[in-house]
Structure formats: C-alpha cells, structure tokens
Design a binder for these strands. Structure first.
Lengths: 113, 113
DNA sequence: GTCACCTGCTAGTTTTTCTTGGCATGTGCA
DNA sequence: TGCACATGCCAAGAAAAACTAGCAGGTGAC
C-alpha cells in the first residue's frame, strides 16, 4: 500500500518495467501465488534466461521479490512473489512526478529520491 | 474518468507511452494549460520534430488530444491538451489486464481498437 | 556414472525506440 | 522580396531494450 507519490524517476522506472507483455504476465502469475523460476518459465513458455532477465528488472523496480529456498529434496529453488504496489496514474499524479525528474533523461544524479 | 479497466494491450500502450521522461514532461505541461507545438518545444527545450513524435505517441495512446486552430493573425496553431485519464496500477489490475493480452507480444491484430 | 532438475551469468545478435537534420507548405509584416 | 513563425513528414544514424545460445555449478535418483 505504498500509494505515496513516487519520485519522477521511480515512476519512470515502474512504468518502463511494467511496459512489457512478458513482465505483465509474470506479475499476473505471481499475483495468483508465488513460483520458482523454472516453473514460471515453463508456464509462460519462455526461456529461463529471458525470464530471469525480466525478473531481475521487476525486482529492481521493487515490483516483485525473490527468495532462495531449499526444497524438501535439497534442491535450491528461487521463489518469487509480487510486492503489494499501488500507483495511480492521472494527469495530476503524472505532472507532480514529472517535476521531480532528474535533469536530462535521468542521466544526471540529482538531489531528489 | 475512464477508470474502467483497460485491456491488456491498451494498458501496455499506456505504460509504454508514459515511460519516457519527455512525454511525462509533456503531460505535466499540458496539465497546466493547453499549448501549441512550437511553444511547448521551446518550453521543454527539445526540437519540434522530436516533440511532434512524442505528441503523436501520446495522442495515439489517447492521453492527449490536439486541435488545429487559426490564431488572430491567421497562423495555423496546433493546440494540445491532456485527456482526463485514470489508471490504477496494482497487482490485481495488472493481473486482470494481463489475461486479455493478445498473444505474442501484441503483434497479432486483435479486435480491440 | 548418467540423467533430470535447480540456479546463475555472459557474450553477441536482433529489434525497437529515440533523435537529429533537412526539406516543404503557408501566413503576416517591414 | 526576405524574414519570422507555424505545421508536417521522412531518411538515417545512435542508443537502448529484448532475446538467444552456451557454459558454469549443485543435488537426488536409477
């Protein structure tokens, strides 16, 4: 329930992260219940390498989180679950966030954040 | 106030469109008041060609709309203003949208739009 | 030992998006 | 006529994101 208005850069990262069909499906699947990487890859019909890349992006954006666990038979499984994010997108919220964007394209390191 | 849940493809388009610092600033500026292209380009400090491209994307995503008008001195000015969009981003809304995604990467032409 | 299943990383290609620069059109004004 | 400002579009290069393929390590079971 982090409905606290994000900074422009965070909003940008969140939007860019969600703006991908695979990642949207990943979030959808994990919303149902948590899953481990290989399981999810099979379910979505994409390669593990690709999925890991998407999971990495989702995780750095704080939308999902992964935890390494040992299954009963001793195998290492990395389980992922969704974070309880909440972002409201309206002209006002976007305008507010835009004002805190770090200079040019987010290259410059600003005070914000 | 179109808080009606978008289809997966529409959500994807909306997210992809907003996931850009220039477009975020454009929305922010237009939220204040409407503006014509050249005016906005000067204000944001970007080239007109670039801005037009961003405006085109924003418009096809339905986030802004432009109207050609004739100024008092007979010049053609294209004024843009923001649309009153509203999108809620939470695991549930994302999951719901993901289920309506057109097959592979949205390449397939579906019924929607 | 060999197979099946789990994780993680990286180099390199392909694809998409972003940007720039130039060119064309039209109006009013000195 | 030449200048200032408006619009629109396109070709081509630059940059960023997506994806593939391959290799590494580890455990349990037959």
């Amino acid at each position: 329930m982090s409905s606290s208005p994000l900074t422009g850069d965070d909003l940008l990262r969140t939007l860019a992260t969600l703006a991908n069909p695979h990642r949207l499906r990943v979030v959808a699947a994990l919303t149902e219940r948590r899953r481990y990487v290989s399981e999810l890859a099979r379910e979505l019909g994409i390669s593990r390498a690709l999925l890991q890349l998407h999971l990495k992006k989702l995780e750095s954006a704080g939308l999902v989180s992964g935890h390494l666990e040992l299954s009963d038979d001793g195998k290492a499984m990395k389980y992922y679950e969704v974070t309880d994010f909440a972002v409201e997108l309206t002209p006002r919220t976007v305008a507010a966030a835009a004002r805190t964007l770090s200079d040019r394209d987010g290259k410059e390191g600003e005070t914000g954040r």
